[in-house]
Amino acid sequence: MAAKPPRVALFITCLADQFFPMVGECAVEVLRRLGVEVTFNPAQTCCGQPAFNTGYRQETREVAARVLDLFDDAEFIVAPSGSCATMVRVFYPELFADDPERLKKAESLARRFYEFSEFLVKVLKVEDVGASFRGRVSYHDSCHLLRELGVGEEPRKLIRAVRGVEFVELDDYRLCCGFGGTFSVKFPEVSVAMGEDKLNAAKRAGAEVLVANDSGCLMHLAGLAHRQGLPVRTMHLAELLAKRE
């Protein structure tokens, strides 16, 4: 690590902010444990993905333009979500393709914006964050993180390094869980059927805890498991990495 501690602006994401603040707290704890100085700009809200995903590009641009301004001078921006990181890194440049000034800002932001596990492994070059947790743990690849950002190995490395964890892979671990943003309410029956497949895979693998890096997938899977009274527990990677049991 460099002599000067890296500074990270946390992009909490609207879902974690309102529903799962614990994810943010754990991310902060892990980052601080690794000597990172964390800042939080309370003017942030959402990255704009719900509107983008539903096809409302003008509304998305209005929301996204604020994000460009808010993080203009941050060294690193880290989000505990592969989906929001994808929104910023992959789709912002596309969204502002016809607006040269904003495009420049979007491209600069994209270079400084990281998903949490990716930041730990690729930038901080850390795999063992000093966490411990006893249990059989599996990891669900959220699609944006895996296929848009190409991050699949990093979270696995981090999980395997947690003391006491027995890591198991699900069959078909690359398969989507069915959340899909507004897909989850436009096609709820299909979304649920896909989620059931994922939870069944977790059951077959004997996983006690299913870890993912996106609050969207997690609230879908947790909500389904809770409705059906299934024993599998869902957890954000940041929560697992903050554990010292």
């Binding site: 529903f19 939080f40 709820p188 979304s191 909500g223 389904l224 409705r227």
Partner: peptide
Amino acid sequence: PLSRWTEGRDFPALAPKPFRDRW
């Protein structure tokens, strides 16, 4: 849209305090 969500899944309640207040 949340009526569609809760047809087959439970929906998480908002946390007592958002992260911005915890910060």
